[in-house]
Design a protein around this nucleic acid. Structure first.
Lengths: 344, 344
DNA sequence: CCTCCTCGTGGAATCGATTACACGGAGGAT
DNA sequence: ATCCTCCGTGTAATCGATTCCACGAGGAGG
C-alpha cells in the first residue's frame, strides 16, 4: 500500500509538502499542490489513519457501548448516533454489552486501548469498574438513555414522566383501576424511574401500586412472559399491564395469548418504547415513544462538544404517548396534544 | 496516559524488556518480569493499540459492512459475528450501508483507512467501486448473505432452495394454487435467487409464476405494502404472498389489514427470514429461517483463516421452513423433518 | 584456563504520518 | 543598494510501540 513517501517521491517534493497539501495548509504553491494531487490520484494513495492517529493523538472515532443490540430501541439509537457522528466527521465503533457488566467492561477497555476520542455509554447495571475509571480519568464521556447517579458526566435521555401521566390518564379514562407494571432491573436508572413515574401518576388518581403488581423483569422478552404469568395467577389479576420496555411487552403478549386470553378485552397492555412492529401486532400496542433519533443526535453533539473543548450539556427530551388499541377502544379524533379524556 | 517508557522507567528496565514481558517473549528473567508487571499494575498501564498497529501492521480488527442495521436479520448476524470475532481475539467495526452503494463505499473506505485486517461484506446493489477495488487489491474479504458473482471472494450464505420447495409443498398441500412473490432488488443475489427458487419450486407442481405475481420490492417495509396493494387490486389476486424478507412481510401484513382482510383466511402470507417478532404477530407468520448465528460464525472463521494465511472456504448452510398459521391451519404434530403433507 | 554458546538485556531503527524549525529567495520599504 | 519580511520548502524530531542486533556475563566443554 502506497505511503506518503511514495507520493512525495512521485511528486518530486518532500513528505512535509505532501502532508501540507493533504491537510490543506495555506503555504503550498499551486504548482506543488497540483503535482502532489496528481501523484495521490495516480497511486490511489490514502493516508494511513493509524499513523495519523499516533501522531496527532486523536482518532476521530467515538465509542458507543449499548446494553443490547437486539433491542430495536438501541438499534435505532445506534443508527442515529452513527449518522450524526458521520455528519460531524467522526466514525463510531459499537460495543454490545448484552446487559452484562463484564462485557461492558471488555468493550470500554478495548475502545480505550484504541484511543477513541470519546465514549457514549448506556450503562448496564450500576456501571462496571473500567467504565467508572474511564470517567474519573477524564475520558470525554456522555451517558445516553441510562446513567449513573453521582458520576459527573453529561446525560442525554428522555423524560417519560409526562407521558406516563398521560398513559395513566388514558387508562383511567377507559375505566381501568388495577394497574400493574413489569419493571426493569433496579440497578438501571430506566428500570427505577419508570416504576417511580408510574406510581406517582397512579397516586394522582388515588390508585395504589401494590407490591404484587410490580413484577421484576430484566428488559428481556422471557422475563416479560414470566412476570405476566405471575400476574394472571393472582386472585385478583390486574386489568392493565405496563411493560417497561418493548421486549418485555412482547413476552407479555405471548403469555396472554398462551392462556387463550385476549388483549385488550381480558387484559390491557401498554409498553415503554415504541417500535415499528407495535403497529403490526394484533392488537397494535399503545406505547410511550421516545424521540430516539433526536436522543442519539443530541448525545453525539454533547460528546463532540466535550471532545473539542466546549462544555457539553445534558439534554432531557420529553417522551410522548402513542395511543393504539391494546388498552381499549381508541380515542376517536386523535388530538395533537397529549391525550386526556374526561370520563365519558 | 502512561506509555511504555513510563513503565520501563519505573521498573528500571528498557522499553524492549517491557515489550517482551507484555508479549510474553521467552527470554526475560523472572525478576525483570515481576518488576515490569508491578509497574504495569501500579501505573494502570495499557498498551496503545494505535502504536502497536502501526508497528506490526495489524489491527486485530474486522470490518463488517451490512446492508441495513434496522433489519433484525442483520442485527442478529452482526451479533454473532462480534461474538465469534471476540472469541478469536478480534474486534469488529460495523458499518451500516442502509442499502445505499455510496454509504457502503464510505464505510469500506473508512475501514480500509483504519487498516482493518479483513472485511466482511453483505454487498448492497451490484457492489460499489471502492469495495471491488479492495477485493482486487487483495484485502482479505468474505461475502456474507449476499455476494457478487465473478469476484473471487469466499461466500458464506444460506441456501433457501430446499426450504422454498418445502414451503411450496406446504402451500400446495393447503390447496393454494395462485402464489405471488414480493421480490428484493434484482441487483442483489438474494433478491434474484429467492425468486428463482420460488419459480422452480412452483414449476415442480406445474404452477406458473406470471409476471403480475412478481412484485418488485427493495427489502423495506414500505415496498412490501405497496406491492401487496397492487396484488390485491388485480382482477384475480393471489391466494398467497411470499415476501423475500421480513420487513416486506410486515408491510404486506399492514396492507392486508388496511383493507379489512384477514390472514390467512382472505390471503395467506409467508416470509423469508424468520425473526422473533413473527411468533408474536397475529397470525404468527410462516417463515423460512436462516441459521443466522452459524452464518455469522462461519463467516468470521473464513475471514480469519484468510487473514492468517489459511485458505478460507465458502460455506453454504441450508435454511429451513418454520410453519406457523399465516398460510392456513397448521400441521397438527410438528414433525422434525421438512413439512410435507398429502392433500387431505 | 580458554573458547564457545546461550541467555538476558539495552540501544536504536522502524512503521507513516504531523509539525517545529531552519533556510533560501523574492519582494517591499527605506 | 541594503535590510527585513514573508513565503515555500525541506530536514528532522516525534508519537508509542516492536524487533533486529550487539554486547556482557556465566556455564559447559575441551
Amino acid at each position: 500500500m502506497a505511503s506518503i513517501k511514495d507520493v512525495a517521491a512521485r511528486a518530486g517534493v518532500s513528505v512535509a509538502t505532501v502532508s501540507r497539501v493533504l491537510n490543506d495548509h495555506p503555504s503550498v504553491s499551486a504548482d506543488a499542490r497540483t503535482r502532489v494531487l496528481a501523484a495521490v490520484e495516480a497511486l490511489g494513495y490514502r493516508p494511513n489513519a493509524v499513523a495519523r492517529s499516533l501522531r496527532t493523538d486523536q482518532t476521530r472515532t467515538l465509542g458507543l457501548v449499548i446494553s443490547d443490540v437486539m433491542n430495536p430501541y438501541f438499534t435505532e439509537l445506534a443508527r442515529s448516533v452513527e449518522e450524526e457522528a458521520r455528519a460531524l466527521g467522526y466514525s463510531v465503533i459499537i460495543g454490545n454489552a448484552d446487559e452484562r457488566p463484564d462485557l461492558q467492561d471488555h468493550h470500554v477497555t478495548t475502545l480505550l486501548d484504541r484511543r477513541i476520542d470519546g465514549l457514549l455509554v448506556s450503562p448496564t447495571d450500576g456501571g462496571s469498574p473500567g467504565m467508572l475509571d474511564a470517567a474519573r480519568a477524564g475520558t470525554p464521556m456522555v451517558f445516553v438513555d441510562r446513567w449513573i447517579p453521582g458520576v459527573d458526566v453529561p446525560v442525554v435521555r428522555s423524560d417519560g414522566r409526562g407521558a406516563v401521566r398521560d398513559l395513566v390518564a388514558h387508562l383511567y379514562g377507559l375505566g381501568h383501576r388495577r394497574l400493574a407494571i413489569i419493571a426493569g432491573p433496579a440497578a438501571t436508572t430506566t428500570g427505577r424511574e419508570r416504576v417511580d413515574a408510574f406510581r406517582e401518576a397512579l397516586g394522582a388518581y388515588g390508585l395504589p401500586l401494590p407490591d404484587a403488581y410490580i413484577g421484576q423483569g430484566d428488559f428481556q422478552a422471557d422475563s416479560g412472559r414470566r412476570v405476566t404469568e405471575g400476574f394472571l395467577d393472582l386472585a385478583e389479576p390486574p386489568e392493565v399491564v405496563f411493560a417497561a420496555d418493548n421486549l418485555m411487552a412482547l413476552g407479555a403478549l405471548d403469555a396472554v395469548r398462551a392462556r387463550g386470553l385476549r388483549v385488550p378485552d381480558d387484559i390491557a397492555l401498554a409498553a415503554f418504547d415504541d417500535i415499528r412492529w407495535f403497529v403490526h401486532t394484533d392488537p397494535p400496542v399503545t406505547a410511550i415513544a421516545q424521540p430516539t433519533g433526536a436522543l442519539g443526535r443530541a448525545a453525539v453533539r454533547a460528546l463532540v462538544d466535550r471532545i473539542e473543548g466546549r462544555p457539553g450539556e445534558s439534554v432531557t427530551l420529553p417522551a410522548r404517548l402513542v395511543v393504539r388499541r391494546s388498552c381499549g377502544e381508541p380515542v376517536p379524533p386523535q388530538s395533537p396534544s397529549p391525550v386526556r379524556r374526561s370520563t365519558s
